[in-house]
Design a protein around this nucleic acid. Structure first.
Lengths: 347, 347
DNA sequence: CTGAAAGCGCTTACAG
DNA sequence: CTGAAAGCGCTTACAG
């Protein structure tokens, strides 16, 4: 005898009553409920997930899909782990559990997701590393499972998403650099099909145009979003016939490699070339020079993502009347030393 | 009509035969099997996890528990994400899925684990951030669920574990520094009860003793395993009346903050103070000066962890006859510039 | 080789 | 307020 049956036998009542007591149903004698709850703790009873999910038709589990290929591992994980606490703080209100679903580099993300969703492992999904053309989005929309993506895709506003304010970042970075008299401003974008690369590039072009600056495709450097990518980006820039005087890095960790390459050329960020990073991180504050970048609260973002997901789930949408969320998450400029040119470069 | 029933109806055969065909049972007509497999793909059928798990009594899911408090998030995640690909490469052989179970900072890790295991969400568990006195280990041992911990605990060899070679690292680091004529060698250890702090400290003491150097408790600096922790550790060292000439940092990211504080004092690692980091990471290679540290393959470690876990599971142990694994994972010295003192300090 | 049936551990209408 | 029973979607002895 095990599970709820054992508990019921121990108390000498039916399993139905035990279940009702445990699940907080109203029509249970208060004394019975107390006895059941006490016995559950005493015997360490936990309802079997499979039995419960099968009967209920839902799992009370929300999945967060990440990719674990060595490249993405190096970047996005810090970001994603930072989100989790915020996500869980919302989900915990409703006794929903968060599980992270890592798609290995051996498996196609689309297939992986199909397996997870097809098996009904989760009630809702959160996607990360959204691609420009992302088949996962189409699949989830077709399969009617509640989901939200962290990042837009070319599917536009046909599904819930929250994305970082790449436009704002590009605008303010370019404004700031132009004010410092820079007019050859490079950017790095990821070499993959991740959507943020597209968004950032467009925003950069628009910002240049606003300032009447020409767009030079040579100044768009495709580089891995890693320390090494930063190193190689710096290398590429140093070898340009007409060297840019400023650069915007799309990932904060790239700054470490970028700085390294500069130092090998006896150059320094801030003094010899202006560098603006993307997301503020512990690293950015302790690098020398400190990195000018943009701040956001990962916890608050996690909370917003979770609430926006719940807003699409029938059982919870009354509590989160947000509709289908399409949201740009603001980021705040943090001034560092990396673009503080003491004397503005002459135009 | 849905699930396996729909598939069976579509093919006009019984659900039993469908199940047997899908699960590769031998007593199925090959033609029938082909038709079933084709129809499953066509209709996008995936067996419902709850139904399958309930019937089988096992989930085919392995859990990897991590902690998502802001502090641990900053460190261990890079490490853990790096493991995942190796873990999955082994688990995939047996159609086992890896899920990551993040314990939020609001919840007690022991309670969290009890909930997960009690609900039978997974067939086996991998623990990380093993504490010196780790109640999770005791709980898992009592509940008879297969598990392995990444890191030893004070429970000793009563359960499977794989741990990094802190002893070897401490030995080689001290040897190397002593050869460079250092005799005041500091170390940092985490301010928490995580077991690696204990192991590292013991190994450090033993290494000093081997060289006939006195142990000075003042040289053991408790510092957060973060950039900021590194910064504060450097600060503390600089203010010591008798300043250490070398330091071993227990986490690689601490070097960034450590370097920053040195640069604020117009000092440099390698020239003014020898720094040895712990695990090699992309950062360590791109810092200036590059960090002397120790290399390991996270993928291979992940493979070893997964295989050692399977070795404890009845269905798989014949394929992985490793017994109960207690394993120290070797690490290889990577020479950097951070402890390359051009002129040895006089004794 | 295939089908009919039992049963995994729950939750929840339904009777009483 | 409680109990007995049905049934969620599977897998697997058991018959044939």
């Amino acid at each position: 005898m095990k599970g709820i049956r054992r508990l019921a036998q121990h108390l000498n009542i039916s399993i139905g009553t035990v279940s009702r007591a445990l699940n907080g149903k109203p029509d249970v004698n208060e004394d019975t409920r107390r006895r059941v709850l006490a016995a559950a703790v005493e015997l360490g009873y936990m309802p079997n997930q499979a039995g419960r999910a099968l009967r209920r038709g839902s799992t009370s589990v929300i999945g967060l899909m990440i990719e674990t290929s060595p490249e993405t591992a190096a970047n996005s994980d810090n970001f994603v782990v930072g989100l989790m606490d915020g996500l869980q703080s919302v989900l915990a209100r409703h006794e929903l559990d968060l599980i992270v679903l890592p798609c290995s580099s051996d498996e196609d993300p689309g297939n992986y997701l199909q397996r997870i969703v097809g098996r009904r492992l989760v009630d809702g999904m959160i996607l990360t590393s959204t691609q420009h053309r992302d088949t996962r989005v189409d699949f989830l929309a077709r399969s009617k499972i509640p989901f939200i993506s962290l990042g837009r895709s070319d599917a536009g506003d046909t599904h819930p998403w929250i994305d970082l304010d790449f436009e704002g970042v590009a605008n303010r970075a370019v404004d700031r650099l132009v004010t410092q008299s820079h007019h050859r401003i490079a950017i790095t974008i990821p070499p993959t099909d991740i959507n943020l690369g597209y968004v950032f590039l467009d925003a950069y072009k628009a910002a240049l145009e606003r300032h009447g600056l020409p767009f030079d495709p040579e100044l768009v450097i495709r580089a891995k979003t890693s320390e090494q990518g930063g190193y190689l980006a710096a290398d590429q820039m140093l070898n340009m016939p007409e060297r840019p005087t400023a650069v915007m890095l799309i990932y904060e960790l790239m700054a470490i490699g970028f700085y390294r390459r500069l130092s090998e050329a006896s150059l320094q960020a801030g003094t010899d070339i202006a560098v603006v990073g993307f997301r503020e991180s512990p690293q950015s504050r302790f690098l020398s020079p400190t990195l000018t970048c943009f701040r956001l609260s990962l916890r608050d973002l996690g909370i917003a993502v979770a609430e926006s997901l719940l807003a699409t789930m029938p059982e919870y949408q009354a509590q989160y009347p947000l509709g289908e969320v399409h949201m740009i998450w603001p980021m705040e400029l943090v001034e560092g030393e990396s673009d503080a040119l003491p004397t503005a470069a002459p135009t």
